[in-house]
Nucleic acid binder design. Sequence first.
DNA 1: CGGATTCCTTGCGCTGGATCAAGGCCCCGG
DNA 2: CCGGGGCCTTGATCCAGCGCAAGGAATCCG
Lengths: 246, 246
Amino acid sequence: MLVDTGSCERTPQACHQGRSENGCADCKVRLISVCSVLEPTELEELEALSHHLTLDKGQTLFGQDEPAGSVFNVIEGALRLTRLLPDGRRQVMGFALPGDFLGLALQVRYSVSAEALGPVRTCRFGREDFAAVVEAKPHLLRSLHERAGYELTLSQEQMLLLGRRTAEEKVAAFLLSLRDRYARIGHSSVTVELPMGRQDMADHLGLTIETVSRILNRLDRAHAVLLVPGGARLIDLSRLERMAAS
Amino acid sequence: MLVDTGSCERTPQACHQGRSENGCADCKVRLISVCSVLEPTELEELEALSHHLTLDKGQTLFGQDEPAGSVFNVIEGALRLTRLLPDGRRQVMGFALPGDFLGLALQVRYSVSAEALGPVRTCRFGREDFAAVVEAKPHLLRSLHERAGYELTLSQEQMLLLGRRTAEEKVAAFLLSLRDRYARIGHSSVTVELPMGRQDMADHLGLTIETVSRILNRLDRAHAVLLVPGGARLIDLSRLERMAAS
DNA sequence: CGGATTCCTTGCGCTGGATCAAGGCCCCGG
DNA sequence: CCGGGGCCTTGATCCAGCGCAAGGAATCCG
């Protein structure tokens, strides 16, 4: 079940706490989220529409083809964005990290399902509410559009990966791209966290779980990476980059 | 070489003809392009910034990673949008058809190369010029953003295809999706035009040219499609849909 | 009209990654 | 401390699609 700690209808006092301990002003992801383009007064305006929503590992934020009632800022944790084929085959379109905005396209239905890979905190807005704010603030729309452009670039990168790379190239490129994304949100480290399981990586890279496992362990044995629980330390970056052939 | 028939610097009289025989008002793709959201006065404003540009088969409209000096509406013909790996492997990200807008994301550099598959007519705008118009007209930005959302959905569909479908499913899904896109721009027909070559399809679907050829001919022999020069007639739609597993 | 070029088809053997099948490890609850 | 379940690893075998090679059809051009 979804837990909407920010439901304001009946408990307006709890609401402020629900939204954020001290409001958007000291939100962890303010500077890396779409909100970074907003003025303080605009931020307050948006804050009045926001609800906090937390999920535990495995819970679904929204499902593919459901009416898109809300849009979300990811504050903490990671989610898996998936699409299903009728026969159950699964493609993981990507992973949402803190600072990411879900529902970017403001479309009527969600095009993917979003599931929590661990404890997740999000900032929720009613889609109509949010769309109205966007309508009134072209620079916010501009920012969303820029993000959409970035997403489009990422998805092109992913298509190139899925269509034209070998299994080893895929895994190496995945580790490097994840490291870049963490760096982009100010979470740089030699050790890349892997909050997703092997099956999720496989479904993201168009491989099987066995192949992903084999290749990760091969990279480990070759001292290109060091596998640790829940992550991987990238030892030989230049070798990985050569492997990724990017 | 690019032929910019709309270059206004030295031949202002030729310019109007260069733009469009009778201006945007009776542009073939006005109703299906981004321009469809513009008022007549806005259309004139944009027309003043437009230049016609035609290409012959094989010519490059722009190249991957080049500074994005212009954005384009495709008026007629089709283009191939590709990305290259350093070693020459190629992924065709998609095909641009009449009504499509190239440079949607308004980014500083092109993320793909665009090459004409046959004679192509486009309507070109300086990126800065166009961005200024967009800045002044939020509903145009809104329309661009909607298109970006549609592109994002298409590219997710393509990722699912590349990652999780068999060769036969890929080819069937490709034919059907092309048919849908032609229908969307008012070019419905049982016979789907295939302005791209086998190698382009292969590079789009993550297959080899041989596999594409084999499967198309297998579908032909099975009377699911009828191959004709430059296209394919979709005979057994329901069978193709079952194959595509969408 | 003939020669060249480009694109497409088809056959054949090979291989990268899938599939099948066992375990192994770790965490959690009792 | 033990037992069960979820995830991960590893080995053995298989096969869909690849790579190579040869030939065919369409188009262009002199």
